[in-house]
């Protein structure tokens, strides 16, 4: 299925294609990314290919590689929470990681989330987005808090957070302005 790229705040989000797979696999297998994942297993080339073939046929998920300037810096996805196609879902679950360590501790790390959330709220018109974050991952919880996410449930292992449009708009105005200025 043909999907369009998303752009904004200095980054492009390109639909994942076969040539991206090896870089994605390297990121996915890094300690930093595996620690954030529900499954931390090492992925081999065949598993990666199987995953790509699976997501290519699915309507309830969209997967992107994040580009900044000439570099790929991370990956993002959107998953439907109700089994419907992403374009018809009422609630979506976005996921993002920055694979390029140069940009992990950088305000640029917010740009792909802003692109994805604008897409969710302004284009797809979802009511709410939600995420499941490891309760120990204080950096991710703090990051999502800056975007306006609020905790809705928590146990020792995972914290469920959710975000609605109005709260997102209120929380991100200044950040959006800084990342939308004139570029060289």
């Amino acid at each position: 299925m043909m999907r369009n790229q998303l752009s904004g705040y200095g980054v492009n989000m390109l639909p994942i294609e076969k040539p991206h797979l090896e870089l994605l696999r390297q990121w996915r297998n890094s300690d930093f990314v595996r620690e954030q994942m529900v499954s931390g297993e090492i992925i081999d080339e065949q598993q990666q290919l199987n995953w790509f073939q699976n997501i290519s046929e699915r309507q309830d998920q969209q997967h992107f590689i994040i580009q900044y300037r000439a570099d790929y810096i991370g990956a993002a996805n959107l998953k439907s929470c109700d089994g419907k196609p992403v374009t018809e879902a009422i609630t979506l679950e976005p996921g993002i990681y920055i694979g390029d360590e140069r940009y992990r501790s950088n305000i640029l790390a917010f740009a792909p989330s802003l692109v994805l959330l604008d897409y969710c709220f302004d284009y797809l018109k979802v009511n709410q987005v939600t995420a499941k974050v490891k309760s120990q991952n204080s950096a991710a919880l703090s990051y999502n808090g800056k975007l306006g996410y609020a905790e809705v449930d928590k146990d020792r292992e995972y914290t469920i957070i959710a975000l609605e449009r109005e709260r997102y708009i209120q929380s991100t105005g200044t950040l959006k302005n800084l990342l939308s200025r004139q570029r060289k």
Partner: peptide
Amino acid sequence: MLDTDDIIDMS
């Protein structure tokens, strides 16, 4: 008035 690239680079 800093532009966006400089805001990102100001690490």
